[in-house]
Design a protein around this nucleic acid. Structure first.
Lengths: 250, 250
DNA sequence: CCAAAAGTGTTAAGCATACACCCATGA
DNA sequence: TCATGGGTGTATGCTTAACACTTTTGG
């Protein structure tokens, strides 16, 4: 198996610097008024789409690798990260899509090319502020853009399962971790927070019940000021208390 | 790095058959009247202890590898398995303990020996019936026995953290998954079930509240028969309904 | 008949749900 | 002043916790 530098690739594709057989894939969630979104890569000269992913350097912690991969695609480096599952069955290792991607872009990889080996992939999900992200395609991808959670294109490998699993865990933890802190701006109204929750949980929530539940949870603090310029009554602004550590893995 | 067969090791230690850099470690929970226990390996001619672990074959799904490793140490093959976290920081990769284990048993590994490389380890936990297990030490280990959850020896690498994390997740899920089915025999009394839960959660539970909570959960069914020979009033026997799949990963 | 374990009844507290009502604001 | 979004009060039902009571069994 070719384990050294691939002469036609940029330097970051010097495969020998990475742990073999182990990859990272990221489900990057963002939120705007029209709902929850995921950042998806589209590959050049093909109709393949995938989650942003990458590899782990030989002297790099896996969490640091995930952070680096996220920064490469979003430009952000203070990101809420959650490692949620390791995907490693045999069916997921289908070399065909990657082979076709390489061939359609001028490479003719041998069957034992490093990129075509079997990978076990560590799934991370990230919560980022949609507006702060500058999506950046990678070397073989020519698009990197947001897709609504219900309008995802077909994804290669088992990436659809990864999205499903990440969503499941996001929904499980939405009331116990300060999910909103990472998807909204610093200050927000209760209505904005409720719309976020409805988008994550994919269901309508009762306004008053939600209001009290969030206040009772103790995660929020109400700021004295009110928002100006709204169409009707000025709502209070809220923010998350910063008692707990900012980045919580697991 | 030596990647082929190590002449002094048995055939199962033909390192080339495994994925490099990736390991599996298992927190195997068992339960007897005196509490929750974990199966721990002790290494020959040293005072090192570790969780049972192993490696993944190149054409083997990670869940299958975990099952195989469990079967090697317990003799059981129908085991409740839960992959709970991937451990991959740099501090966990300390070659010294393994080097000393090998040296104290007649091997003189070079510094780039396969076993001394950096590993990312997938943590699985298993729930097994304590009485059905026949613990089997491995090649370098001469003991394989149960330790009470509060009497664990010091463990190598980050295995203590793995135990802690596994316990945390076991506790989180104890009321929503049919944990007891895998740690008790087919039929049990409510009192036995309560003692198990108290042992897992490490706290006393209210008898009547526990009774009703378990019955309302719908996971249990009451069997008509009663136990005979008990010292006092004959309790009902209960068992878990078998609606849900037996092995639930995640 | 008493002690101990097991099952059930009762009450109070806590939380979610649902609805009603009031407040503030711009059109 | 009215429509609308936002905040709070109140009634109902469900879950949990705590305690009392009854049932069953062996000594």
């Amino acid at each position: 198996m070719k384990n050294s530098r691939d002469p036609d690739f940029p330097d970051s594709f010097n495969w020998g610097q990475f742990l073999p057989a182990l990859a990272i894939d990221c489900v990057i969630f963002g939120y705007s008024e029209d709902g929850l979104k995921i950042l998806i890569l589209g590959y050049k000269n093909t109709s393949f789409f995938s989650l942003p992913g990458g590899f782990i350097r030989k002297k790099e912690a896996i969490d640091d690798a995930a952070k680096r991969i996220l920064e490469e695609r979003t430009g952000l480096n203070d990101i809420y990260l959650n490692q949620f599952y390791a995907f490693g069955n045999l069916e997921r290792s289908d070399p065909e899509p990657m082979k076709m991607i390489m061939e359609n872009n001028g490479f003719t990889p041998s069957n034992d090319h490093w990129l075509l080996q079997r990978f076990v992939s560590l799934g991370y999900f990230a919560l980022v502020n949609y507006k702060r992200v500058k999506p950046r395609p990678g070397f073989l991808s020519d698009s990197c853009r947001w897709y609504g959670i219900h309008e995802l294109p077909e994804l290669i490998f088992d990436h659809a399962k990864m999205v499903e699993q990440a969503l499941k865990i996001l929904r499980r933890d939405v009331y116990s971790k300060r999910i909103g802190k990472n998807l909204l701006f610093e200050m927000f109204t209760m209505g904005e927070l409720q719309k976020l929750y409805e988008s994550i949980l994919d269901e309508k929530l009762h306004r008053t019940g939600f209001h009290r539940k969030m206040m009772r949870s103790g995660l929020l603090k109400r700021l004295g000021k009110k928002k100006t310029g709204g169409a009707h009554r000025s709502p209070y602004l809220y923010s998350f208390r910063s008692d707990k550590p900012k980045h919580t893995i697991s």
